[in-house]
Nucleic acid binder design. Structure first.
Length: 275
DNA sequence: CCTCAGATGCACT
DNA sequence: GTGCATCTGAGGA
């Protein structure tokens, strides 16, 4: 164990130096995207600077289209360590992404877009890279994905290490129940699952599905850690038992040793320590 | 640590 | 009607 790259997390409140790589590459062309069913005018927010003060992080570099416009598996890995930000009633709710899953599109039997099937529900999977795909599941829950390069390909966000305004996130999570709080456990339990993090960040299909995360003022990503390859566990995805020969493909990624991950895969971890 | 059932609503055959 | 890219609490090893 003990990967010598300490990108992962548990250092108590220690500052890490964020390398300010001035992104010179934000000029990638972006296809136009239909936003006809959005009520708010998605005006042209292109950088965090335009967001109101109380939610802006100093030195935060917003991730742009060129970050998302890569193959699905690459995006799933690149997302690890980055911060997802959700603005709710003027409050900044955020977390570091620590676990993802890639859904590759028409070839992938576990993907909602398998065989290129396009429906009202999964339209966002076919929209430009950086589009949020939110769907309802099991009646009471929802999950969020981010579309990548490749038709129908998207990355499911499975777990976050909560960062800002944990009290508010805790309220969203425990609303309607009595007394439960995850604050005493350093926020473990708040966002360690795809639907838990949607509850914590108040992400719902109605408000977030099809939003362009490159330009939205409600949800976006910021550059945070770069996680070194040695600290990324690759293993099979969760709860896709119906997907036949795709069940065992190593398309789930998480940060080794991070306690905010939803489910560990010990065999996969053992495998990497003997290499 | 583990497995299990129940909650709950919508998209799709 | 069926089946979910889930979560929770209860009960057992």
């Amino acid at each position: 164990m003990a990967s010598n790259c300490t990108s992962s997390t548990q250092s108590r409140g220690r500052k890490r130096k964020s390398q300010q790589t001035q992104s010179t590459s934000s000029k990638t062309k972006k296809p136009t995207q239909e936003i006809s069913d959005l009520t708010s005018d998605q005006s042209q927010y292109t950088s965090v600077k335009h967001i109101s003060k109380n939610v802006k992080k100093d030195n935060a570099e917003r991730l742009d289209y060129s970050f998302f416009d890569v193959p699905c598996e690459d995006l799933a890995e690149a997302l690890l360590g980055q911060t997802i930000v959700r603005i709710c009633d003027g409050k900044r709710l955020s977390g570091k992404i620590v676990e993802t899953e890639a859904y590759l599109g028409s070839i992938d039997k576990a993907a909602h877009s398998y065989k290129g099937k396009k429906t009202d529900k999964n339209t966002a999977m076919f929209m430009p890279p950086g589009t949020a795909y939110v769907y309802n599941i099991y009646g009471m829950y929802c999950c969020i994905n981010i579309s990548s390069k490749g038709d129908g390909a998207a990355v499911l966000i499975r777990a976050l290490q909560p960062l800002d305004n944990l009290e508010t996130m805790d309220e969203f999570r425990t609303k309607g129940k009595d007394g439960n709080s995850f604050l005493k456990k350093e926020g473990v339990g708040l966002c360690n699952g795809p639907s838990k993090l949607c509850q914590s960040l108040n992400i719902k299909k109605d408000s977030i599905n099809k939003l362009d995360m490159c330009t939205s003022d409600q949800i976006w990503l910021e550059k945070n850690d770069t996680v070194c390859k040695d600290a990324i566990v690759k293993c099979k995805r969760i709860n896709i038992g119906y997907a036949e020969d795709w069940v065992d493909k190593p398309l789930r990624f998480y940060i080794l040793g991070n306690k905010y991950v939803s489910v560990r895969d010990k065999p996969a971890e053992n495998e990497m320590s003997t290499k």
